[in-house]
Amino acid sequence: MMTLKKIAVPVAALILFGLFWEFLVWVNGWPNYKMASPSDLWPAFWKFRWLFLDYGWDTLWRTVAGLLIAVVVGVLLGMVMGFSRTMRDALYPLLVGFNAIPKATVVPIIALMFVGQHDMNTILIAFLISFFPIAVSVSIGLSTLEPEYRDILAALGASKLTIFWKIALPKTLPEFFGALKVAVTLAFIGTNLMEIVEPHGRGLGHLFDSGKISADYPLMFAVLIALAVMGILLYYIVVALEHVFAGWAERTPQ
């Protein structure tokens, strides 16, 4: 009963949203080069179905690869900053400054630096745009660990590594997953920025650019929807992982 409701409510909301969208286009009499309607999207999807699958896969694996690198680098940076006051003072301004640069400006630079390396460029941007929240959350999680948590094991003669594995790491997991939810969306943006900019680059971003060049507006909208679906998918994969690894931090509503 509860699960049925859990699925039915968002599905109903989606259907209502689609109907509202269709109605808005119809009542205003917008042509599809101004605003495509949901009924225009199906033909676009069908016409380019193989490209959607092919390019969708490109976008997906590039995003996931960039995100995985961001997780590794972000966690390592977070650990370094979380454990060493000096490193935190040294690295923080650097990271904040780097993060403040709009990544849209970095995209053409990377594209020129490694011309033609489409996969690498795309993964690189996905990584660059998404590691920051992970690094920050891990460093805050580790540096705010209450001393008593360390003491219960340190008093028994446990090594720093043991304390990290048994206490610091699991205790930081909820913050880590919070950051990962932000990072997964960011990585997705990074992938598409690069795919749109790079010529002959493949990926859904490239398909979007093709739609723009050939003035195929329903195709452009169809790509947006495909991206949204993929974004939801990735996001909920992270939510599922969070439930498995940090489910203890969830509070059941009273």
Binding site: I152, G157, L173, W248
Partner: peptide
């Protein structure tokens, strides 16, 4: 530190997971 000590604090510091 030696393994022959046991400690308890005002904060029970139990591990939530």
């Amino acid at each position: 530190p030696r393994a022959t000590v046991g400690m308890a604090f005002q904060n029970p510091v139990l591990l939530e997971w």
